[in-house]
Design a protein around this nucleic acid. Sequence first.
DNA 1: GTCTATACGAAGATAGAC
DNA 2: GTCTATCTTCGTATAGAC
Lengths: 193, 193
Amino acid sequence: MPTDTRARMVTGAARMISRRGVDAMSLRELAEQEGVPLGSTYHHFPGGKAELVDAAVNHVGDRVAESIAGTRGQGTEHIVRWVLHAWRRILIKSDFRAGCPVLAAAVAKDERHRDTARAVFGRWTDGLIDVLIEDGVPPVRAPSVARTIIASLEGAVGLARAFGQIGPLDDVEAELIRLVAAAAGEPAPGAGR
Amino acid sequence: MPTDTRARMVTGAARMISRRGVDAMSLRELAEQEGVPLGSTYHHFPGGKAELVDAAVNHVGDRVAESIAGTRGQGTEHIVRWVLHAWRRILIKSDFRAGCPVLAAAVAKDERHRDTARAVFGRWTDGLIDVLIEDGVPPVRAPSVARTIIASLEGAVGLARAFGQIGPLDDVEAELIRLVAAAAGEPAPGAGR
DNA sequence: GTCTATACGAAGATAGAC
DNA sequence: GTCTATCTTCGTATAGAC
């Protein structure tokens, strides 16, 4: 089953990237983890490591983007809680070793991966903007709130990993929900502040 | 001048870590960048790469912590603006290649560095909590706001690197200043949310 | 297409002359 | 203490038998 092998390598790579970062993800180790010969890597991914990394990051990016789109109509608060719930599970299950593979791509040594990360973050941002506007956040402010949400979540995951605690996730959840509620309740944003 | 060599290696390592991450930071490359023989690395840092990485992360951590403490009395808004101003300069000057070395340590392959990152983030958080309380944020809520600030800033830097734009920094700055103002203006926080 | 064996480079680390 | 040369390991990548 050739396609299945490829899929397993993609999810396995995403997992290893999320824990160690792009540069420390080893093709050798991945191959033996998945029970695949190292040589097969280059059959499924002729572009080598870079192609596999991009595939893994896009795979995760797509799944999250679909989830955001799938919760349309339930409000921003629902999405924020859903994402943080997912992260709590991932962090606890991984003993606070797993992180976001998209952010890992954004800071990888090979700068080609920055474009991949940019595209994924862009899709997430666009999805969030739609939901925020549905919630009543003024359209001119929605992009700012959307990017703040994503930045806070990514940063909270990093802090949680450093502290080995989910506390930062709880903190950011509470503050973000206040922030979104306030933004949705306002008729129009001031210019400077 | 032996001490000067050591100091140059520390700042050089911090720089390379901020751009590439801990794992992609090369002792060889650092040594030749600084005009130091590779072997000297182990004279100045008997613990090898791990010791140098920790020294570099702590060096940056200390400088920022001192800056936070040094702006006491000027308010949280001042600190947030100051940090974001510094990041804009760093990002633009580095063509959006530099990031936070402390976060890099938190997600490094060698998990020993997580402790170093945790300690630095802890110092930053404690400093922010003091300032927030001075600003009138209820003490029970100050830790949550402090960690949200740090998480947002770290995440914003990541997004800025991915997008190759300072936009996320502007967004987070605006939203954080609203958030702090709202938190300082409230008499007391609700328990759950 | 699958898999083994290997090439080639770069990493961290060390020995030892000076 | 400084610096060179080298050891060992591990990385990506490839050649070629099956």
